[in-house]
Amino acid sequence: MKFRFLKDKFFKHLMFMCIVFSISIVFLMLFGLFIRSLPILQQKSFSDIFLSGTWHPLRGEFGFAPFIVGTLWVTVVAMVIAIPLCLLTAIYLSEYAHRRVTVFLKPFIDLLAGIPSVVYGIWGVLAVIPLIRDYIAPLFGVRSTGYGILAGGIVLGIMVFPIIIQICVEVFQSVPKELREASLALGATKWQTIKHSVLRKALPGILAAIVLGFSRAFGETMAVLMVVGNVPKIPKSIFDCAYPLPALIANNYGEMLSVPLYDSALMLASLILLLLVLIFNILARLILIRVERSTQ
């Protein structure tokens, strides 16, 4: 009889250890990547690393500026495409669409969330690149191979559709029905109710969804790597090639141990990526927790 309780106690502690272990991964990551990037941080000045635009690992020059700027460009283009489309679709799904439509659309969007990024990348190469090369770039009078920021942005934008739509729909559903009724009862149309009351109430949640989408796009590697062109220069227009941080890390892991400081530089790139994504995620999750609390 006693054994049952001992077993219960033992497993309780074991389970708690599992939790401690899981959560400690974040700290282990920060610590491990920091230790590995120490050499470059000690040998180079802050401005050499973050403000310089020259990337010549063989000459020992590691300027991150082109990569940071490239990441931002691609992510911003992706968000410009994704935000309006996702927001409108989420409003449609949660407020207007008939049940028959949502029953079909929601699983479809879930399905897309599961498609691997390499597949998105292949699609980018097969469909988006020719589209930009043959139609969009000539339209603006630019000669382009198709590879570049715009291609990366389009592919990434489509990749973040599911996450932004899913969270936005959840946020809209957490807005109490009574709030809508209060506005409708005053004679507001459905759209006025959404515009003036529902969207306002849902604003923090929408922001969180956007931040999460942004950070997903920010860290996405393979799909972007395949379509942005990977040229380590600061881009000047959306038809230029770029070289985002994740692509830099993925592309050069093979040779990084043979060039001094190269591995340290790539680990620093990972650390920067991790820190930024952590900040975005923590902010967004805190907002979502507050949203959830305020509706309970």
């Binding site: 009724e181 209060a182 009862a185 003036h196 009351s197 109430k201």
Partner: peptide, 19 residues
């Protein structure tokens, strides 16, 4: 909307609009 304008509604719990 013009029907609803003719009628004010008070619900069980007050639901002030988020403004």
């Amino acid at each position: 909307t013009h029907i609803r304008k003719k009628m004010g509604l008070l619900l069980q719990n007050p639901y002030p609009l988020p403004m």
